[in-house]
Design a binder for these strands. Structure first.
Length: 377
RNA sequence: GCUGGAAUCGUCUAGUGGCAAUGACAAGAGACUGUAAAUCUCUCGCCUUCGGGCUUCGUAGGUUCGAGUCCUACUUCCAGCA
């Protein structure tokens, strides 16, 4: 746990504007973090990410352990150097991916699973995830947690308690690795750890988990196991009222739907990450202020207007809907690139504008006008 | 001109007696939230009260309970020989 990691500039209810300070630069929050699972944001270069306004990326420990291996990333000088993204980075622990694989064997020690690439028998534990994340060298690490597949309360409670026990081991191992790294290259000596709050849709379990995590010497928090922020107002309010105010909170995996970003920010979440925007872009689903459209639809073949007239992304400024429609119909790589630029820009800018509205004290009005237009209600 | 071969959904194609008829592509639409996702799902002759009904495999006849499948003629295309 380090001082001056997070500073808050303005509050509006639970919502806040702040700055996360990392060795690779500052993140002005609330902020949308780009999903760079395999150390790349699919279909985008790092300079495109920078141009569209992204402040940080999140890579995935499970995927990087498999390929290219964490030793290689350490050898390269860490994730930021390796990927060419010399700005703030996160790594997710890999737990989420592992639990999505078939035939995983969960024990108190860790999780045994088969590589989805070559079937190799592997195991990840809280300790090995921390070691892998230190080798990868992202600025912010996420604790190795257990996300229950089930919606059953008993299963979720059990996974939550295991997550808590594993958190203690993550904290211990993270501390040991920090100790070991002190005096080495700067990027290795300042790495931060987020605990993960679980508990599903049960507010009492969420409260219990938030309390448990709040007392630990961690630098911030991930809120996991959320599948939609819509309607999760009470849960987020409960959790973020318990978590210490002076540490940042990351809403894990949320951001495909604008409402998730608004609801998350409203109740004090500072960062978000989501694969949705770029995945949907690759599949032809594009954000507009009036909702998402499928650019592959026949009705766009002759639409020579910009996707969004008031969007200043590279795609909207230079190309038309008809052109992107054509690129998708002919399966050109550029279709996915331009669509990804737009969608990623859209969510990054949406969260930026949320930050501005909190700063300006107009969040509530902004949320209402944005969402009523987007969801046409 | 002769001798072979071939004609099936927008395209290519499976099919040698029970078939509205295979697969791929194209087309139309939908899904996607800590990325095993440049992926996946559905529709794709016409009509339908979703039970079914109707019309289809170059054209016209024929054999058969039943024909895309067998027979005859014709049309068109391909290959070889002239």
């Amino acid at each position: 746990m380090l001082d001056n990691f997070f500073t808050i500039q303005k509050h509006q209810g639970l919502a806040r504007v702040g700055v996360i300070h990392t060795p690779h630069g500052d993140i002005y929050t609330p902020a949308f973090v780009g999903a760079a699972t395999r150390a790349t944001v699919k279909a985008l270069t790092m300079s495109q990410m920078q141009a569209l306004g992204s402040q940080a990326i999140l890579a995935n420990t499970y995927h990087l352990v498999l390929r290219p291996g964490t030793d290689l990333i350490r050898e390269a000088g860490g994730l930021a150097k390796f990927s060419g993204w010399n700005k703030p980075t996160f790594t997710d622990s890999g737990g989420f991916q592992i639990f999505s694989l078939p035939n995983v064997k969960i024990s108190e020690h860790g999780v045994k699973f088969k590589s989805h690439i070559d079937g190799a028998n592997l195991e990840m534990t809280p300790e090995s995830s921390m070691q892998a994340q230190w080798a990868i060298g992202a600025d912010i690490h996420i604790a190795f947690d257990h996300l229950a597949k089930s919606e059953n309360r008993k299963d979720i409670e059990e996974a939550m308690h295991r997550t808590h026990r594993w958190l203690d081991r993550c904290v211990a191992e993270h501390g040991r690795l920090r100790e070991e790294a002190s005096g080495q290259r700067p990027y290795l000596s300042e790495q931060y750890l987020y605990a993960v709050v679980q508990g599903g849709t049960f507010n009492d379990l969420r409260a219990e988990s938030a309390k448990y995590c709040a007392e630990k010497p961690v630098d911030g928090f991930g809120i996991g196991g959320v599948f939609t922020a819509e309607g999760m107002d009470d849960m987020l309010q409960t959790v973020n009222s318990i978590l210490p105010e002076n540490k940042p909170r990351h809403l894990l995996g949320m951001g495909q739907e604008p409402i998730d970003l608004f609801v998350g920010a409203e109740y004090g979440c500072d960062t978000f990450d989501c694969v949705g925007p770029t995945r949907m872009a690759r599949n032809g689903s594009l954000y507009t202020k009036d909702g998402r459209i499928n650019i592959k639809n026949a009705k766009y073949a002759h639409d020579f207007t910009p996707l969004m007239s008031d969007c200043d992304c590279e795609f909207c400024k230079n190309y038309t809907r008809a052109y992107l429609h054509h690129l998708f119909k002919t399966d050109e790589i550029t279709a996915k690139i331009l669509a990804s630029i737009h969608n990623e820009h859209f969510v990054v800018r949406t969260v930026d504008s949320i930050r501005e509205s909190i700063m300006g004290g107009t969040f509530a009005d902004y949320k209402k006008s944005f969402l009523s237009r987007y969801y046409q209600c």
